[in-house]
Design a binder for these strands. Structure first.
Ligand SMILES: [Mn+2]
Ligand SMILES: [Mn+2]
Ligand SMILES: [Zn+2]
Ligand SMILES: [Zn+2]
Lengths: 183, 183
DNA sequence: AATCGGATGATAATTACTACCAAGTAATCG
DNA sequence: CGATTACTTGGTAGTAATTATCATCCGATT
């Protein structure tokens, strides 16, 4: 299995390209291009840390001392909605526990957050061959498969919407998902 | 790639076995076997929902109307520490954002929570073949590799401890990890 | 430049936990 | 079995992250 830590130089080039297209993409998505949004996406693209809102806030503050933390939270969420960012922690809103301690994986409905167990023995085999990745010592792993459960697959298409907020209850990052299957 | 939703009957059998061994395992771990702990592990094992603390609370309440929500939180965390349960949401404490929207995966240091990007093109290929799992419509997926970063791998062994509480800062589920590599 | 709907900042409110501490109770030991 | 004691629990106050509210502001369009 090929498996590589992402190289820093590559990321920097990618970030520059994305930043260049940002204003255009905002307009296309019906969002105003504000200095705050620019500063936030710039800070996010500049980081390889998968930062939290408060880290972005501290960075952006240096150039925009008046920016509000609420704006940072809102904006990061908005960026996820239009597909300009991704929330790494799709299930971060509250802790979910599992009585099944045998190694296994999960399918997660991105709309209602139902979670079901999945077994992928081959994946476990593939991964357990790896003792380290780069300079990280591997302990284990867990695959999240993002999906729509039968109940949610039927209901309204969701997605789409020219530029509406489109909120779903109890959901941090709404339905938008790019993931493995994006492109 | 073999990939199967876990069958309900199998889970029930597993749960019964685990429940039978629970008291013994508690004592071995230096924990008292209290009615609250029994009720909580029973509720957790009985559920396939990967419940949150408040759901367990509601269930357990029916038999123990005086139980405290704080006890449920504490106990679930304790169960994770002794390996009798697993927190599905290892990064649930705060949202982490990613400017990289190209499909990729992550290595996460279980101690300091550093996150770095990993590319596993073969995995993406394997999974993108799947349009659905059981009756879930697959949208994408994301692999979390749990690991120790170079900085943390050096520092004290952690783990072990006969029955101490062993708390690490800002960490919900401490260092304990079973995952793919458990057995 | 005028208009106006979305965006922002300040702050209150909410949510999910976590810390505390007095009181209760498993476990151990006569 | 009853005393001892360390571990647990319940009740509650406190904390941290996020979200809601709303008056004001400003980017986009005309
Ligand atoms: Mn599970
Ligand atoms: Mn990433
Ligand atoms: Zn659903
Ligand atoms: Zn680390």
């Amino acid at each position: 299995m090929e498996l590589q830590l992402v190289n820093e130089g590559r990321r920097a080039g990618y970030a520059a390209r994305r930043l260049a297209e940002f204003a255009e993409r905002c307009r296309r998505g019906g969002l105003a291009v504000t200095p705050q949004r620019l500063a936030i996406i710039r800070a996010l693209l500049a980081s390889a840390e998968h930062p939290r809102a408060d880290a972005i806030y501290e960075t952006v503050r240096r150039e925009h001392p008046h920016i509000s933390l609420a704006t940072v939270h809102r904006t990061l969420e908005t960026l996820c909605e239009i597909g300009e960012a991704r929330k790494v922690t799709m299930l971060h809103d509250s802790a979910r526990y599992d009585g099944n301690v045998v190694p296994h994986h999960h399918v997660i409905c991105v709309r209602c957050r139902r979670i079901r167990d999945v077994e992928i023995p081959e994946l476990n085999d593939l991964l357990s061959a790896r003792r380290e990745i780069g300079d990280f010592k591997v302990l284990g792993s867990s695959l999240e498969i993002h999906a729509l459960c039968p109940d949610c697959a039927g209901k309204g298409r969701a997605r789409r919407a020219k530029h509406g907020r489109g909120s779903s209850p109890r959901t941090g990052c709404k339905d938008s998902v790019q993931d493995t299957r994006g492109g």
